[in-house]
Amino acid sequence: MIDLISIALTSIFISNILLANFLGMCSFLECAKNIKTAMGLGLAVTFVLTMTAPLNWLIHNFLLSDGALIWLNMGDINLDFLKFMTFIAVIAAFVQVVEMALEKFSPSLYAALGIFLPLITVNCAILGVSLFFVEKEYDLLQTFVFGLSSGIGWLLAILGLAAITQKLKYSNVPKGLRGLGITFITTGLMSMAFMCFAGISLTNK
């Protein structure tokens, strides 16, 4: 249990997927203009991350990784090189299915999240999490927690930036720095603030 909480804390605060690993920057910069959009996109990312990370874990561990096909008596086949293609296909297909399901069953939620869903396929945070759990060798439950808390971390970061950007409208930013430049400096400062969490550790090493 303690290691799950530790994974959650680490991926929300200490190595925040956006502020420490730089994943999902593109849509982060585009959509952090008002809080409502940021909230919608953040929730959509969290949802897709929570679902696709375990899904990809199952595929990776039962089909792709070294010796995974042992249940088919083909343990000596290593399909690891296919992981990029499979992961991105799973993510794209999942996003498509969610979009269709939302449109059919919950039009109000679709109206709120619908426009963000296509953006998510190419959000590097989603693919990044799927590649990270392979590298960190998490088990299924850990992957689930990792996906969920990475999403929450991303949501937290984009909400923070959206709030700061709205306040920044009233300040006098140097001309060349307006727009993208100041966004980067702000993100840098946020990232520094998040580094304060770096000392926190739940496990006594």
Partner: peptide, 9 residues
């Protein structure tokens, strides 16, 4: 990480 953000900015 913050260094990267500042430099790009």
């Amino acid at each position: 990480a913050p260094g990267a953000f500042f430099i790009i900015g």
